[in-house]
């Protein structure tokens, strides 16, 4: 066993999950700025200390519009040319192992549900759940590579099974060695955002 695989990549707080929108042509990054400001004003992300909104609509394929919180970033980004909502933990690990991954899913799904129901967006934003992106932005604990992914695969699979109630169809490395670790996940099911949230709420009970 090499040193990288011995390291607990999932002890990093920097876990991320991205859900992609179903119709990228409807995306207008600038209209998301007032939406995220309202989230802050109305405390819609109850367990986050939401600080500010960073707007990068002028940067192609960038972080888009990012809601900066004390322990997370919620970015409606366009990385690699694909629009979606990305939750990324920051600073403080929220749970460990499988629970940390499920927690990241819960948070991104909550954000996606808010966007789907956002009155100002009039239902333009819908999220697919069948293909998602999982990542760890921590080059020290989780360097991008097959070895790291292999080491965390069993825990990731267990978490995906808990979220989707079905085993994942595929998990593949989606990042180069100089990038943060990213895995493209094809889930075993593609329920609605609300259905997944309901399921996770039931599991939590």
């Amino acid at each position: 066993m090499t040193s990288a695989s011995k390291v607990d990549a999932l002890s990093s707080p920097e876990l991320s999950v991205k859900l992609f929108v179903t119709d990228a042509t409807k995306v207008d990054l600038e209209e998301l700025i007032p939406v995220f400001h309202r989230w802050i004003r109305e405390d819609l992300l109850e367990d986050e200390v939401a600080i500010d909104v960073a707007g990068y609509a002028h940067v192609p394929k960038g972080p888009g519009v990012t809601l900066i919180c004390d322990h997370a970033h919620y970015a409606f980004d366009e990385r690699a040319g694909r629009f979606g909502l990305r939750y990324r933990g920051r600073r403080v690990a929220r749970g460990s192992g499988k629970d940390a991954i499920v927690g990241a899913f819960r948070r991104v799904l909550r954000g996606a549900a808010l966007l789907e129901k956002e009155p100002a967006l009039a239902g333009k934003y819908r999220f697919a759940t069948g293909r998602i992106e999982f990542g760890i932005s921590d080059r020290l604990l989780a360097p991008s590579g097959a070895e790291t992914l292999a080491a965390l695969r069993p825990t990731l699979e267990a978490a995906l099974k808990e979220v989707y109630e079905a085993p994942a169809k595929s998990i593949a490395l989606a990042s180069g060695p100089r990038e943060p670790l990213l895995a493209a996940v094809e889930a075993g099911a593609s329920p609605s955002v609300d259905a997944l949230l309901d399921r996770l709420a039931a599991v939590a009970r």
Binding site: S3, D8, L140, T155
Partner: peptide, 15 residues
């Protein structure tokens, strides 16, 4: 995965 896993080196050590 977390059972028996260990922390990697710090950046201070690595660099």
């Amino acid at each position: 995965m977390s059972g028996g896993a260990m922390k990697g080196p710090s950046w201070a050590e690595k660099l």
